[in-house]
Design a protein around this nucleic acid. Structure first.
Length: 514
RNA sequence: GGCCCGUUCGUCUAGGGGUUAGGACGCGUCCCUUUCACGGACGAAACACGGGUUCGAUUCCCGUACGGGCUACCA
C-alpha cells in the first residue's frame, strides 16, 4: 500500500517556502543546498520562494554576509522571488531586525505570557552559571532550565507577584521563557523522517525574547513563518532537536493548524574526517563564491573561482540527498524543478565527494559551445603573453576541451602549442629513441618542409608517405620531439595549429640536440 | 553523558519479504586508437552485527555497535 506523499497532498495553502539564513558569515554549500531544495519545491508547485534574513543576534553580525548570500543565490541560479535583495512582497520587511520594529515578536510573546505558557526570568548570567555548576556537581546529566530547575530560579513563577511587578517596572534585565511542561509526549510528522516523538522533559524552557528585546530564533521564525504564510519549513537536520519546542509554541499560540509542514534535510558531511562540512577543510571549496571574512586574514576560495560552472555545482548539490528515481544524473535546475519531491530526499547524511564534483564539471564543460570557451580562454592566453585570432583560439579550444575538467586546465594541457619545448620527456626518449631515429625523423622533417598545404590532412598524409619509405614511425616520438611531453591533444591537429615553420624549427632543434 | 536522527560497494545512491542486489564517480583490465583523449566492454567492490516475525529476510520489529546532530539570552 503506497501512501500519498505528504508533500503532495492537496493543500489548502499555496506553497510558500523560505530560506532563512543568519548573516553570520559566508553561505556555505550546505546552506546553498537548503536554499536549492526550497527553490525546487517552490517551482515544482508553482509557489513562492522567499529569502528572509535572521539577524536577531547582533553580536554575531558579519559585515558583507547578507550581500554574499544574495550574490551566491544569484550565481547558483536559484534566486528567490521575494525577500531581501530580491524585491519586496506583501510581507515585507524581510529582515528580522526590521520586523522587530513592527512589534510582532513582542505581541506573540505577550500572548504566551498572558495564556500562562511563557514567563519572565530575571536570572543573571552568573546565576545561570551557578545553577549549571550545581547541577553538574549533583551529577545531573543534562543541566537545563526546565520545569524542575525553574523552581529555584528568579522568575515570575517563583517570585512574589508584587516583586515581579516591581522588577518589570524598574526595567530590570529579563528574558521571556517558554513554559515547557514537565512530562508530556510531543509528536510531530516530518515530511522526510516520518513521526518523531520526544518527551517534553528533554526540552528546556527556551528563551523567546532576549534581554536586549530581540527575539530568539525559536520565537522569531515561528512568528515570521505564520505572518508570511509559510507552508513548509525546510531546514537542516541540526534543527530537529528543537522542533518539539517549536511545536509547543505553535500549540500555545493556538496556531497548530496553521503550522508549516516540517522537512528536516540530511546534513552534508566531510568526505574524510568527521562532522558537518566546514570551511577549514582545505582540500576543496565549501563556499559557492570566494568569501572574505572580515575576521580572517585570507579569503576562502569559492567554487566559482575554482573553475566550477554554477550548473555543475547546483547539480551535484541536488544529488547530495535527493534522487530522481532513475539513473539520470545530469539535470538543469528547471529539469529538477519539474520532478523534485521530498519523498525522494534521503534521511542519511551525505559525504561530499570532490572527485565526483570534478566529473560533473567536466560534463558541463563538454556541453559548452566552443566559442564560449574561446571567449573565456582568450584573456587567459593574453595573460600568458600570447595573442591569436579568434579562429585560432577556437580551434585550440576544440582540441583541448575533451581533455579537461576545467577551463583553467586549457593552458596546461595545450601550452605546447605556444611554447617550444626546452627538454624532451626522458622516459619516452630512453625507451624509444635509437640510432635509426635521427634519420627517420630527418626524413619526416624534409617532407614537412616541402609541404605547401599545412593542414591536418596534409600532415597526416605526409607522415604516412614517410612511413612508406622508412617503415612504421613512432608517433609518440614525433609528439615528444615537437612538444616535449608524452601526452596532449591530437598530435596532427596540434601541429597544424603550431604551424609549418614552427614545427620544422622544433624538429630541427630536437634533431640537433638528441 | 543525555536526547534525537541515521546505517546498501571507498563515495553518491537505486531497490525492497523470494533480485545474478542496479546505476554513477573513482580504481583495474581489455577494445578502439600509429600519439593523446573521448567512447565502448569487462572486472574488483556493499545490504554494520545479534536476536526475533516469517516457509523465506538486505527489506518489517527489537536490541547492540558505529556515525551524525543537538544539548546558549547562536542560528
Amino acid at each position: 500500500m503506497k501512501k500519498i506523499p505528504l508533500s503532495l497532498c492537496p493543500m489548502e495553502k499555496r506553497v510558500r517556502v523560505r530560506f532563512a539564513p543568519s548573516p553570520t558569515g559566508g553561505l556555505h554549500m550546505g546552506g546553498v543546498r537548503t536554499a536549492l531544495f526550497n527553490y525546487l519545491f517552490a517551482k515544482r508547485h508553482g509557489g513562492d520562494f522567499i529569502l528572509r534574513i535572521e539577524d536577531t543576534d547582533q553580536t554575531r553580525f558579519v559585515e558583507g554576509a547578507e550581500e554574499y548570500i544574495v550574490a551566491a543565490l544569484k550565481w547558483c541560479g536559484i534566486a528567490p522571488n521575494e525577500g531581501v535583495g530580491f524585491g519586496d512582497g506583501p510581507h515585507k520587511p524581510y529582515r528580522q531586525s526590521e520586523r522587530k520594529e513592527l512589534g510582532i515578536y513582542q505581541k506573540y510573546a505577550d500572548q504566551l505570557i498572558l495564556s500562562g505558557h511563557a514567563y519572565y526570568a530575571f536570572d543573571t548570567e552568573e546565576e545561570l552559571e551557578t545553577m549549571r555548576k550545581k547541577l553538574e556537581a549533583a551529577k545531573v546529566v543534562a543541566p537545563q532550565y526546565n520545569a524542575v530547575t525553574r523552581q529555584n530560579m528568579r522568575n515570575s513563577l517563583t517570585l512574589p507577584e508584587d516583586e515581579v511587578k516591581k522588577l518589570l517596572e524598574s526595567g530590570a534585565k529579563k528574558v521571556v521563557r517558554l513554559k515547557v511542561p514537565r512530562n508530556e509526549e510531543i509528536r510531530f510528522e516530518d515530511i522526510i523522517r516520518g513521526w518523531v516523538v520526544v518527551n517534553s522533559s528533554q526540552v528546556d524552557d527556551k528563551v523567546l525574547l532576549k534581554s536586549d528585546g530581540m527575539p530568539t530564533y525559536h520565537l522569531a521564525h515561528i512568528v515570521d513563518d505564520i505572518e508570511m504564510k509559510i507552508s513548509h519549513a525546510v531546514r537542516g537536520e541540526e534543527w530537529l532537536p528543537s522542533a518539539p519546542a517549536h511545536i509547543l509554541i505553535y500549540r500555545y499560540l493556538g496556531l497548530e493548524s496553521e503550522m508549516p509542514k516540517l522537512a528536516h534535510l540530511p546534513l552534508i558531511l566531510n568526505p574524510d574526517g568527521k562532522g558537518k562540512i566546514s570551511k577549514r577543510e582545505s582540500r576543496f571549496p565549501v563556499f559557492p563564491l570566494s568569501w572574505k571574512d572580515p575576521r580572517e586574514a585570507e579569503p576562502f576560495i569559492g567554487y566559482k573561482e575554482a573553475g566550477y560552472y554554477p550548473e555543475a555545482f547546483v547539480n551535484i548539490l541536488a544529488l547530495l540527498g535527493w534522487n530522481p528515481g532513475n539513473n539520470q544524473e545530469l539535470f538543469t535546475v528547471d529539469e529538477m524543478a519539474q520532478i523534485f519531491d521530498f519523498e525522494r530526499v534521503n534521511k542519511s547524511g551525505a559525504k561530499f565527494d570532490p572527485e565526483k564534483a570534478k566529473w560533473f564539471n567536466q560534463q558541463y564543460l563538454r556541453k559548452k559551445a566552443d566559442q564560449e570557451l574561446a571567449d573565456v580562454f582568450k584573456p587567459v592566453l593574453k595573460e600568458k603573453g600570447f595573442e591569436r585570432d579568434n579562429a585560432f583560439i577556437l580551434e585550440f579550444c576544440k582540441l583541448v576541451k575533451e581533455k579537461v575538467q576545467f577551463v583553467h586546465e586549457f593552458w596546461d594541457q595545450g601550452k605546447y602549442v605556444f611554447i617550444a619545448p626546452e627538454s624532451y620527456d626522458e622516459k619516452v626518449i630512453t625507451k624509444k629513441w635509437n640510432e635509426k631515429s635521427k634519420e627517420t625523423f630527418g626524413k619526416v622533417t624534409e617532407k614537412f618542409k616541402s609541404l605547401n598545404d599545412w593542414t591536418i590532412e596534409a600532415i597526416t598524409k605526409t607522415f604516412h608517405d614517410a612511413e612508406a619509405e622508412t617503415g612504421k614511425i613512432d608517433m609518440q616520438l614525433l609528439r615528444v620531439l615537437t612538444t616535449g611531453v608524452a601526452g596532449g591533444p591530437q598530435l596532427f591537429d596540434m601541429l597544424a595549429l603550431i604551424g609549418k615553420d614552427e614545427t620544422i624549427k622544433r624538429l630541427d632543434r630536437a634533431l640537433g640536440k638528441l
